[in-house]
């Protein structure tokens, strides 16, 4: 049994405090910023839940795509260099990786974004 709050629970507690106690006392720009703050915390919460798996998957795909080994950040940098220099063909394999990686990022950043739904219909 857990004896101290998880990171997720701490975030939820702060979101709850802002929404039920702090935000009702704010107005105009501060009320708007309170909503943005809740969005920011919700993003952190999704990142904690989703990012590790997404990064592992991305690194696996990148090893196949590039035929190289390395950690995710290194492989991503290599991909950027190869696209920039023209060494990476803009083919189905590249688009497949970019679609999956971008969809994973938008699921963290803005899961309600209309462009995500449109892309998911094609994956």
């Amino acid at each position: 049994m857990s004896t101290h709050p998880t990171a997720q629970e701490l975030i939820e507690a702060v979101i709850g405090f802002i929404e039920t106690r702090a935000a009702p006392q704010l107005k105009d720009r501060d009320a708007f910023l309170a909503r943005v703050a809740v969005n920011a915390l919700a993003t952190v919460k999704r990142e904690l839940a989703l990012a590790e798996h997404a990064e592992t998957q991305a690194a696996t795909r990148l090893r196949d795509l590039l035929g190289e080994d390395g950690d995710g950040a290194t492989l991503n940098r290599r991909l950027c260099e190869r696209i920039r220099s023209g060494d990476q063909p803009a083919d189905a394999a590249l688009f497949e990786h970019l679609r999956l990686a971008t969809a994973d990022q938008v699921r963290i950043d803005q899961p309600g974004y209309s462009g995500l739904k449109a892309l998911e219909e094609r994956i």
Binding site: F95, L98, Q110, Y113, A118, L119
Partner: peptide, 10 residues
Amino acid sequence: ASEAEIDLLP
């Protein structure tokens, strides 16, 4: 920025 990416890709 990721919203721009998801729109740009297709």
